[in-house]
Amino acid sequence: MTDAREETLRGLTGGIPYLQFLGMRFERSGDELTAVLPFTPHLIGNPVIPALHGGVTAAFLEVTAIVGLVWAGLGEGVQVSALPKTIDLTVDYLRAGQPKDSFARARINRSGRRYASVQVEAWQDDPARLFAQGNGHFLMP
């Protein structure tokens, strides 16, 4: 089921080459948006363990935060014409990302006219067992 909110989101994110490079997509369940990063071998950083590249994890959290912000804005009827810009992002690497699908969700802690603060959590099998979490500040378009 798609509606205007989902269509606007797809319009803003659909043409971004880097999201296609990572293979990221978004799944909606009611009001809740979950980012999905299906595993592919080119996401591996350390082939010995093997583990997801730390940069992939950071990128996954950053995109989840940005899209989460847009999603929340659209839910409140805000006209969104461009994506928020990252001011800073802090990532805690809690455990190695396994070579399997990853999921992430954003929580908007504050969203003002100019600045927003967003927390992001990422997991693989068990949503209660995070492999990474992040906190970022964003400049609203």
Binding site: I16, Y18, F60
Partner: peptide
């Protein structure tokens, strides 16, 4: 412009 995520990845590496 290159995505911030790719910039993060080169900085992490």
């Amino acid at each position: 412009v290159i995505h911030g995520g790719a910039v993060s990845a080169v900085m992490d590496t």
